[in-house]
Amino acid sequence: MSSLPGLDPAQQAWVTERMPDAQLVRDMSWGLVETTVLHVRAGGDDVVVKAAGPSDTHLPREISAHAGYTAPLILTGHAARLRDASAEVRVILLDHLPGELVLGTDAEWQAATYVQAGVLLRRLHEQESRTDAEYEARATARQLYWLDQPHRIDPSIAARARHVLASAPAPAVMLVPTHGDWHPRNWLIDDGVVRAIDFGRFDFRPAATDFARMAAQQWRERPDLEAAFLDGYGSDPRDPELWRLEALRQAVGTACWAFKVRDEAFEQQGHRMLSEALAAYDGS
Rank of each mutant, 00 (worst) to 15 (best):
L120N: 02
F204V: 05
G180Y: 06
R152W: 10
P169V: 11
T131F: 04
D191P: 05
E128S: 05
L175V: 01
Y135L: 01
D191L: 10
Q127A: 03
I153E: 08
Q116L: 10
A208R: 08
A212Y: 13
Y145T: 13
Q149Y: 04
W146N: 14
T178S: 15
A137L: 08
F211A: 09
H179G: 11
A137K: 13
A111K: 10
R152E: 15
R160T: 12
R162V: 04
L147W: 10
A172W: 04
V193Q: 15
A161Q: 05
T140E: 09
W182F: 15
A166Q: 12
L188R: 06
E128R: 06
D210A: 06
P206Y: 06
I197R: 01
P150T: 06
V115F: 14
F211Q: 08
W109R: 12
V164Q: 05
D191C: 11
A158C: 12
E128F: 01
A168S: 12
S129A: 02
G118I: 05
F202V: 07
H163N: 06
D181V: 11
R185C: 12
G180I: 08
I197L: 07
A172R: 04
I157V: 15
L147M: 11
L188V: 03
Y135F: 14
V115W: 14
I157G: 09
E134H: 13
I197C: 03
A137I: 02
E134M: 08
Q127D: 04
A158F: 14
H125I: 00
R130G: 09
R138N: 08
W109P: 00
I197H: 01
L188P: 00
T140P: 05
H179P: 09
R162Y: 03
A111H: 07
S129K: 03
L175G: 03
D132I: 05
D198F: 04
L175Y: 00
I197A: 03
A168P: 04
I157S: 09
A212W: 14
L120D: 01
T131Y: 02
Q116S: 12
D203N: 15
Y135S: 04
F204W: 13
A137Q: 13
Q127L: 01
R195T: 02
D190N: 14
D210C: 08
W109L: 10
T113E: 08
F211E: 09
R160W: 12
G192N: 15
A170M: 02
N186W: 08
D190M: 11
A207N: 03
R123D: 02
S129G: 01
S156W: 15
A158G: 15
A207I: 00
W182A: 11
